[in-house]
Nucleic acid binder design. Sequence first.
DNA 1: TAATTATATAGAATCGTTTCAATAAACGCA
DNA 2: TGCGTTTATTGAAACGATTCTATATAATTA
Lengths: 361, 361
Amino acid sequence: MPYSNRQPRAAATIRDVAEESGFSATTVSIVLNNAPLARYIPAPTKNRIQKAAKKLGYHPNIFAKSLRSKRNHTVGLMVFDVTDPYCTLILRGIENTLYQASYLPILTDAHNERSRFERYLEMLLERRVEALIILANWVLIDINLLADLEKSEIPTVIIGRELESKSISSVTVDDEGGAYAALAHLHVLGHRKIAFVRGPKALMSSRKRWKGIQKFAQDTGLELDQKLTIDLPDQHSPNQGVEDAYKMTEELLKRKRSFTALMAYDDMTALGAMRALTKAGVKVPEQCSVIGFDDVATSALFVPSLTTVRQPMEAMGAAGVNVILDGINARAENRKFAAVQKKLPSELVPRQSTRTTGGGL
Amino acid sequence: MPYSNRQPRAAATIRDVAEESGFSATTVSIVLNNAPLARYIPAPTKNRIQKAAKKLGYHPNIFAKSLRSKRNHTVGLMVFDVTDPYCTLILRGIENTLYQASYLPILTDAHNERSRFERYLEMLLERRVEALIILANWVLIDINLLADLEKSEIPTVIIGRELESKSISSVTVDDEGGAYAALAHLHVLGHRKIAFVRGPKALMSSRKRWKGIQKFAQDTGLELDQKLTIDLPDQHSPNQGVEDAYKMTEELLKRKRSFTALMAYDDMTALGAMRALTKAGVKVPEQCSVIGFDDVATSALFVPSLTTVRQPMEAMGAAGVNVILDGINARAENRKFAAVQKKLPSELVPRQSTRTTGGGL
DNA sequence: TAATTATATAGAATCGTTTCAATAAACGCA
DNA sequence: TGCGTTTATTGAAACGATTCTATATAATTA
C-alpha cells in the first residue's frame, strides 16, 4: 500500500519483542546488543529472542538509543562548494571510509558564505554529530571561523587547508613539493622562460605552491621573471576560475614577453589559460606547454589532456575520516587525543599539454 | 581548550532552564517551542525564560525531542555515483531547497552497487529519515529495487528517472522533447547525414531520447541511417563513458560512411566522440558538428565548447525536494498524498561545437 | 553442609523532551 | 453574588531504549 493513506501502525518496540519471546525487555536488550551480560544467556533464549525480533521486524528506535547512549554514529560534513569539481573525489573518499565504519554523514554546503557556514555549523552541533569534517576547497576561512570550530569541542578535521590550531586536525596535499615537481618537470623538458598564473595570495595553498617554485628556482638557478608572473584576484571563486584565468592570461600575453611554458595555480586556471592561448593562436603544447595542479576529472578529458600534479583526493578524504574516527574513539574511551596535521604526497601526471621545447617559438 | 582533554560537562537541560528562570519545565518547553499554549503566557515570563536559556546556552536535546515528536527534520539522500558530474548541480539544488526548509540530508552513495544500495537504504530507514531522495543518475534500478523502496513507506522521489509506480514520485527532464530539439537544431543548420551514439538500451532516458529523434525524423522526413547509429554497451558506467564513446566513435568511423554531424547520448559521450573525431583528423565543428545532452560543467569549458541540451539540474533537485516536502507535510497532517511524476523542460544551449554544414566534408 | 560464586532473568530508574490533565487565579457577565 | 471562561502554570505520564540493582537458582568451593 502506498504511504499516502497508510495507517502508520506503530513499529514494534523492544517490549513487543519481550512479550513475543516471553522474556523481559532487559534480556531482549542484552541479547540484541550482545552486551557483556549476554555471555550468561543460554543459546535457546537467544534464539527465541532473535526469532521474535525478526518476526516482528523489530528495529531499535534510534532516538531512544541515542538518548541513552549519547552516540549517534553520525558526522557533520561541511563543504564550501559542492559544485567545485575538486570536491567530488574527496567526497567519495570520505563517504567510502565512513561507510566501512558504519558512520553516516550529514551533508551541508556553505556556498562559500560566512553566514551559511555559521548556520549550518549550528544545525550540525544541535544534532550532536560526533565529529566534523570540513572540506575547505576555497578561501574564506578567516580566523574567527576557526574560533567557531574550536569551540565546538568535537573532533574536527579540515581537508584541503593547513591550519595553525592545536585542536583542529587537517589533511592537505604537499603543495610545496607538488609545485616543485611540476616546475622540475617543465625544466627537464627544457623550458626556461616560464610564465606563472599564481593563485590568490590569500590562499595558503597558493603561497605554498609559490614557495615550492621559488625553492626550485633557487636550487637550479632558474630565473623567475617578474614580468611573466600574474596573480589571480583574491575574491576569485572556483567556478569563475576558468574565466578569471582566461582574462589573466590575455593580460599576460599583452605584455609581449615570450615564454615556452605556463604553470597555472590549479587545473581550472590551466584550462582557462589554455583557452586564452589557443584563442591567441598559440598552440598547446607545440608552442607552449601548460601544467596545472589538482587533477580534476576534466583535466584528463581535455584536448590536449592536461599535465598536472595530482592530489590524492580519495586518500585525503579517507585520511580525514580516519583522523576523526580516532578522535571519536579516543573520546569514547576517555583517552586524550591530539589534533594531527597530515600532509599527503602529490603525484606528477604527465599528459599531452607539456612537451620538450624543441621547435618552440 | 582543545576537546582532547575536556571534561564533557553535561549540557544544560530544559530543567536547568526551568530552575534558572523560576518556572517549570513545561512552561519552558511551551515558550521555547512557541507552542499553541504560548499565547497564554505573558511577555515577562517569556523574556525571563528566553534569557535563562540563552544564559545557559541551552540547546534542546534532539534525541529526546525526536523521541517524543517522531520527527527529525532529516531526509535520506541516496546517490548512485557522486563522482558522476551529472550529480553535482542536482545536489546543489537539493541542498539549497532543503536548507530553506531547515531540513538536513544524510548523504549515501550506492557506487552503482546493488548490495550497497540495500545496506544504505536499511541504514537510512533505521534512522527514520522522514523522506528519501534518490539521485538515479545511472542504470541498475531493476524492479526489485523499486519494491524495496515502495515498502519503505516514507515519501520517496527519484530524480533523473521515470517510474511506473503509484507510490514513488519522480522528477525527470523531458528527454524526448530535448532530443527532438537537439536534432531540430542540427537540421536547421543544414545537417542531413547525422550519426548517433545512442545510450545503453537499458536506460529509460536513452529510449526516450531516441523516441524524440524518431519523432523528429518522422515529422520532417529526415532519414535515420541505421549504419550511422551505434549503441553504448549496457554495462556502461558514467566514468568510463568518455572512453566507451571514444571506442564507439572509432567503430563508427571505420564504417567509412560520411556524416556531417554527430548526436551523442549525453555530454560525456559527446566529449569522447569529439576526441575520437579529432584524433581521426576530423575537425569539430568545421567538418563535423557535435551535440550532447545534459550540460555538465565540463561542456562549457571544452574547446570547442559543446552545444548541448541543458537539463535544469538545480531546478530538478529543488523540485524533488518540494515533492517530498509536500509528502512529509501531508503525512504530518494526516492527509492523503499521491505520488507525482514531474517532467521539466530542457533547454538548447548552442555553443561552438555545432555550425552550419557549409563547406562540410 | 554451609558459604560463595556463577548463571539467568527481571524490575525500576534514567536519558531529556513534549504533552495530557489538572489547578488556581482573574475576568466577564447575567 | 455566582458561574462559566479565559489566562497562567504545573505535575506527571509518555516516548523507547539501556543499565543499575535485585533476586533466584544452580554450581562450585571450603
